[in-house]
Amino acid sequence: MESFNIFYSVLKYIPSPIRMESIIVGLAVHSPLKKFSHFYRIKNTRRVVAFDDEYNKDFFKMVMDSLAYDLDYSYNEYSESLFNDDIKRFSDIEQDNFLDTRISYLANEFQFSPIESLQTSDSEVKNDLENLQKMYLYYDRPKSERITKTEVRNLLSKQLNSYHLAHITKSPKIYDEFGGNNLYDYQINDEILVKAISFDYKRINQLSTELKNVIYDLKQLNTSNISKVILTRNDNLEFLPEKHKLAFDNFKIKIKNIENVKNLKIDLIPLSELEGTLNKTKA
């Protein structure tokens, strides 16, 4: 089963350069091997209206349509005879830097995140594309169809595999104090731990329990060989209930306190920033 990479980037809408608050409004994906590229746009634009009371419907649609024109391409055996214009416009579809050349010009209100990659295969690519949409265009789906923590961990695994890291251990032998659960999902180069967490719990009590456990485990962590912990979180936090947002803010404060006490770097990031965070560590 041949594996190949999917490259992706998340589009954020930032109406105010002063506040720098953002909402995810699109997802660009590209597979050089499969000659495939697509821009998935937000469907639930009511979220955008609620986020920005000065939202310009016509301007927003123009930007979305322009990105679809620049990015939507799916090669098939009839393409050359039927869509010569597309063949010319997408002559670089097999290049790894295709996505970068198509999205790097955007700035100000619309900004793409640094390009990420994940490793997939013919049998898994459909589910992986679905999970990326579920991850980043989260509110386009009913609650029963939103991404699960297991699916988030699966995306995390595929992203790490696409980086071809020299030393990576899945489910490292770092257990809770009762010797039961593995506390972290991955260990990289023996010194970096990675764990997926979520702030999207229906009940604040469930979220509170999860965050307390993470904080407790960080306090108990033996840091003699560990220099960094990366906590990958769900994006889409702009529409969390107020109690959940408060929990998120308090969690960040407690993490900072642990960093100071244990001389440990703790990064709390969305999955779309994982590779950039690892690259900063190397530097």
Rank of each mutant, 00 (worst) to 15 (best):
D267I: 00
Q95T: 01
E116M: 08
S37M: 05
K143R: 11
N127H: 09
K88R: 14
K34E: 13
I230K: 01
L207K: 02
T148Q: 05
M64W: 05
L160C: 12
A283N: 14
N161T: 05
Y138W: 11
A166T: 07
D122S: 12
F51S: 11
R102T: 00
F7H: 08
L193T: 00
R153M: 04
D100A: 09
S74Y: 11
N44V: 11
L271R: 00
S16D: 15
V63A: 04
L156M: 09
V10L: 06
S16P: 10
S144M: 11
K262S: 03
L221A: 01
K262Q: 07
S66E: 15
N189W: 06
N182L: 03
I226R: 00
I14E: 08
T150S: 14
K252N: 14
D70I: 00
K265C: 02
M62S: 12
V48Y: 07
I93W: 04
E116F: 05
I266F: 02
N84Q: 12
I253D: 10
V48I: 15
K149V: 03
K254P: 01
F251Q: 09
K170N: 09
P172D: 01
S144Q: 14
F39A: 12
S3G: 12
Q119T: 06
S121C: 06
S123C: 02
Y201F: 14
I103A: 03
Y78A: 14
N97M: 01
S79Y: 10
D249V: 10
K245V: 13
Y40V: 07
I103C: 02
S31W: 05
L237V: 13
F248K: 15
P17W: 13
R19L: 13
D140K: 10
L132K: 06
P142I: 03
S79V: 11
S66I: 01
A166G: 05
Q159M: 15
K282S: 13
T169K: 05
V25S: 03
H167A: 05
P114C: 02
R102Q: 03
Q133P: 03
K35V: 04
T169E: 13
Y138R: 10
E54R: 15
D200L: 07
E275F: 12
D70E: 13
Y55N: 08
T209V: 06
Q133V: 00
E259S: 09
A247N: 13
V49D: 07
E124D: 13
S144I: 10
K126T: 11
M135R: 09
S37V: 10
A50I: 00
I197D: 09
D140Y: 04
M20Y: 02
L231C: 07
T169H: 01
D96G: 01
N236R: 14
R203I: 04
N127C: 04
R146W: 10
N127M: 11
K256Y: 09
V261D: 14
T148C: 02
R146L: 09
K212P: 00
Y184F: 02
L274D: 06
Q95E: 15
S121G: 08
I87L: 15
K282N: 13
S208N: 15
